[in-house]
Nucleic acid binder design. Sequence first.
DNA 1: CGCCGCATTGAAATTAGTCAATACTCGTGG
DNA 2: CCACGAGTATTGACTAATTTCAATGCGGCG
Lengths: 230, 230
Amino acid sequence: MALQPASHQPASRHLANLLPLTPASAGDFAAFDKVGSVIIVKRGETLFYEGDAADCYFKVASGAVRSCKLLADGRRHIGAFFLAGDFIGINDEESHLFTAEAVSDTTLIRYSRRSFDNLLSEQPALGRCLLRMLCHGLTAAHEQMLLLGRKTAQEKLASFLLIMAERSGGGDAVVLPMTRADIGDYLGLTIETVSRAVSHLKSEGIIQLKSANEVVIRNRALLEAMAEGV
Amino acid sequence: MALQPASHQPASRHLANLLPLTPASAGDFAAFDKVGSVIIVKRGETLFYEGDAADCYFKVASGAVRSCKLLADGRRHIGAFFLAGDFIGINDEESHLFTAEAVSDTTLIRYSRRSFDNLLSEQPALGRCLLRMLCHGLTAAHEQMLLLGRKTAQEKLASFLLIMAERSGGGDAVVLPMTRADIGDYLGLTIETVSRAVSHLKSEGIIQLKSANEVVIRNRALLEAMAEGV
DNA sequence: CGCCGCATTGAAATTAGTCAATACTCGTGG
DNA sequence: CCACGAGTATTGACTAATTTCAATGCGGCG
């Protein structure tokens, strides 16, 4: 699907890990904003539940949202964190495939599925943009599977910090809006293991903690090497 | 994207786990067959490497293909097994995102990316079909992330057997064309752990082994319960 | 028959998880 | 302004699951 010349790929693999659906460029989906309405969800509140009728899609304006899936006995997995600009819930199914909850107070734009689909059929370019977004999501999902299946706790955390750094502008200062529990459920670890991995990176001087959820990357090269399993 | 009335969802979650891209119905992509050429790859041979220019897409006619990613020190992860009817390598990127190798002797249809794209722009319906396929792949990837991040070895194997049973017709007899090493790398386990999980299911009478890679499901209800973490 | 690749099984080592105690942060109310 | 409390994070000690290492078994093929 070389629908358009693909945007140049990120240099190192983990940087591709933008799990949620992000338009390639900011303006790509501007047309959608006209058919959406603004909603606000407070920290911890649920946007929709797994299995709910998927009659709306959402785009994050500010804040953060997590997608959750549960096993029968309550074990939780977070499939993605959605940050400003990310689309949530876009799929071909009748019902939502995960529960979406606000990580922090969040503002979203809600689109009715009907108007979304209408717009899509009117403007073929949007369909191609959507295809690109889905491809990107699939690529990121494969990267995340490698992480979950084969990386150690240290490597998982290193990868996570680099992903978050990349998604929040690419600088060395990273704000983590989610708790350690959220990070654990995203990486397939427990709270304690996440905390120990953070402490370890800190003691090695690879990162610095401004506070529990403000991290500064001090040695990016080493962090990247760790993330790749070197 | 309710592009078309979505096909009814599978009753239980793991059945949705058709990781590779499969057309919703057999005829959906028949148009593509006219622009493809047949190629044969022997067991163990490589179809393409991660990073290769993605100028071709493939569809499996018979046999099986695995997608692999490697970490720096050689740890391997298999992202998907592609069986008859599955499309391989479709993405928006310039280069392939994984290495594709034949699990067994395999016949494929190769499409040049150019003719694939041409066909796509000529027939909008194919684009919608492709969207559905990608959504399906994304759904399956999320399910696999839950498996990799939160399921035990037993639960992983139970899920895997049910996925394979579903993909090979839905009956209780399942042929596994891949080795234990492949299964391990797909589930984020070692060969030995896979083997022990198989032995355990066998000793419980939940499955029966005709040979090392021919399994018969004897107690599907229990296997499904295990897969869901009950 | 004997070799080779793959699978199984056992025992030891390691990683991450569990349980438990303590510390930090931030907001509220005295 | 400080004390208190709830929620979150850190740290330690112990446990359990999985991996690693090692040996044996099985099946097909020259």
